[in-house]
Design a protein around this nucleic acid. Structure first.
Lengths: 190, 190, 190, 190
DNA sequence: TATGAATGAGTTTTCATTCAT
DNA sequence: TATGAATGAAAACTCATTCAT
């Protein structure tokens, strides 16, 4: 990436960009804490910035949501790629990736729905790219024990099952999550 | 129902009871359609009744939520019991029950969280009763192939994974649900 | 007008209607005091009513503006009619009417623009009706000294000149208004 | 302008002065287009300058308003003087001046109010000077047909009636303005 | 008692003004 | 100094809850 300062168009890009990052980070934080419906005021407070700044950077909710989704997709795409090319024990890498992905869903409640409902071309493109990464990962994993009927969509769905829920009926299901993960990982193996 | 019809109060009581049922049914309908945060207005509309009536029957949200949760728990407790005493192929009965339970979670998004967070003694009691039913079911199922490390809490957690989400990235995950169910059922078997 | 209570459709019409009137009156008051851009909060405060009530009665600004304009048009139409059928000194009645009309413009700054810009069919109809009344008045007045080249539009324009302005350069133009009115009334006479 | 160009400050001063003129011109343009409430952003856009520059030149609105009013007063004072000393048909010169003055009011909606409300000593002085010019003009015009009860304030008020309004109810009042002018000019004549 | 109108706190959004670059 | 980004108060609007009828 070319540094912003070399772009003659960009006056004040330094602080503006810094703020953009701050707001984006705060939005992710707020979305993970309060859901994707967190208010602009919540985000601004979290970013320690005025509401107006959030609006200046992301004049409408879809634009903000888009930026966050792209950020998340970039992150998990990277991990999918890493897991695919991992030189070490492949199944272990696959399990690690799946847990990472489940963790993202647990952090961002409703992520699947937002990804599915996104209208923005940029998100659609990134989503398709992401599915390709998943496809490659599955192809790789098939050779190392993954059920053949599990493709990218199924994998996505399975990870999506872990969308955040606090549901231990008696403060006892700390084990619930671990066991469920174990059950699913085992179930995914041929 | 055949209460002294000569008592001028009884008419009101019957009427009131009917209204309570209407509102309760409408609340379940609205909760399943819009989530547990459905507004009293939504519920009232669904019940074809004024908002005031909903407030009269359930002056505060917790009371309404309690009634709905008790209703749901009664229903799934009954199915757990049925599956336990089923004379036929026990594993098949277990699978049928699990799918039923997952279906309830799919209908009522966020059910686990509400059950876990309930403060009402009545719900707590019903929840304990429900866990006992699940315990009996597990004990029975252990003898027919269920992993020994899956107890009532784990079973509850696993079914809860299916809390409703519309998340097919490309209208392709009709297969997602079926396969996830298969993966989990397989993973639960020893 | 049929009383509201005879309309089977209208439950609670009594208080709702009462509030509608209150809000409408408050809107007129606020519009005259602060201009047609007075905020809903100003209007609500003026009506001693919650903002929500103003929104319930007039869910969007155009609807509120429409109601106010119709009210004003009804009022001045009535006066135009009265002046036309006045049995006594016709020119004096004409002058009285013109002063009344100028007063309305003085009270509601920007009235002409709002009338001209109205998109609502109801306002357009009322405006046409109003122009007809003015036409009749002019026809009548022509026979009593009004310049023949003054028709309804010209009359409207002339009265509109008095749109509210506080403009005495040295607290001395109390005479300004009176003299201007005299000059114009004289200028209108043949 | 030919200030010592060797003074390193002078460049800045010339530059600053040029900017001041630019902003002032833009303010007049914006005020005439959007009214005296035009935002600093509007003015900046019109001047093709950042908002900050407008604030630097005129740190507070009153200062900017003052500069604009002084500019306008200078202009109309000059015309009043010209009309007074005009050698040709005096009444015609008077009419021309009145139309010019009405035009200024039409261009700057709300000018009268701003002039009347000005707190700045400079504006007050200029206003008094302006009234003297008007006084002289009236004195001159009285001898050529102007009603004796029309003095400077009345004249100012009458011209102020033409403060801009777009109010043709049916795209027909092109005639409105011309006729109103005729009516008033006729009415002003003895 | 049932109703739906009224309430006002909360959210989204804009914009005049300030301030870091 | 000029710039335009940041600020936050205020406007428009929504909706859960209360209350008059």
């Amino acid at each position: 990436m070319v540094l912003a300062s070399s772009d003659p168009q960009s006056h004040l890009r330094v602080d503006a960009e810094r703020n953009r990052e701050r707001v984006l980070g705060a939005a992710k934080e707020a979305f993970s804490r309060l859901g994707f419906d967190a208010s602009y005021h919540d985000i601004a407070r979290s970013a320690k910035v005025g509401v107006g700044t959030v609006y200046r950077r992301f004049p409408e909710r879809p634009a903000l949501l888009e930026a966050v989704l792209l950020d998340i997709l970039r992150d998990i795409s990277f991990h999918a790629h890493s897991a695919t090319v991992d030189r070490r024990d492949s199944w272990q890498a696959f399990e690690a990736f799946f847990e990472k992905l489940a963790g993202v869903h647990q952090r961002y409640a409703g992520l699947s729905e937002r990804l599915a409902g996104a209208a923005s071309p940029a998100v659609k493109t990134a989503r398709d790219d992401w599915l390709e990464k998943l496809q490659a990962l599955c192809a790789h994993a098939w050779a190392h024990g993954l059920r053949k009927d599990i493709g990218p969509h199924e994998l996505h769905y399975l990870a999506g099952l872990f969308a955040r829920r606090e549901c231990d009926l008696a403060n006892q299901s700390r084990s619930g999550h671990a066991l469920a993960m174990r059950v699913i990982l085992d179930g995914m193996r041929q």
